[in-house]
Amino acid sequence: MDALLKGLAVDYLAACDFAKTGKTWQAFLPAASLVKAAQRLLAADYFLEDISALDCAEGYVVTYHFAHFEKPGRIALRVVAPHEAPNVPSIAHVFHGAEWHERETRDFHGVQFEGNPNFIPLLMDPDMADCFPLRKDPKSRIKVRDVLEAGQVLCCAPGFGLMTPDAPAEAQAPAGDKAPA
């Protein structure tokens, strides 16, 4: 996995316990390296299982699950899109099936996928396409680090504080350029 993403800007990469959460690797990526990562996964014969968004206090965590036809396991790529401007590049031209998943995510959370070839409401009635049912109200949003499994951290970019286990003060997050757990 780290070989797969070598040379790409990765915010956070961790090995996870498949028996506990159902995935073997997870990576937080900056939006800019998402398409490249998807291309590499396609070249390595992975297929896209689904795309889903999670409305957290820090933004929408868009999760891409990938699996392989021959190998067991599951990879989760994650991109965080801020609430004010939830823009994520589309991977629909890499994994063609992503087109629908992205449109579905737009319907539910209002995340914008830039470059999706046919970005119209998929499941929702176009009349009420802007109601975004799965957005949470700001008070009840949770912190990413509270729910997502941290896993065994392999690398964490400096300044990436989303998964830092205990960050009582914001100041600590940038300082924590990661001792592996």
Binding site: G22, E49, V147, E149
Partner: peptide, 17 residues
Amino acid sequence: GEAYFAVEGARGKIGVY
């Protein structure tokens, strides 16, 4: 926490996250 579980349905891979 979080969990992903997949089974083989009659139509393919059913996953719940």
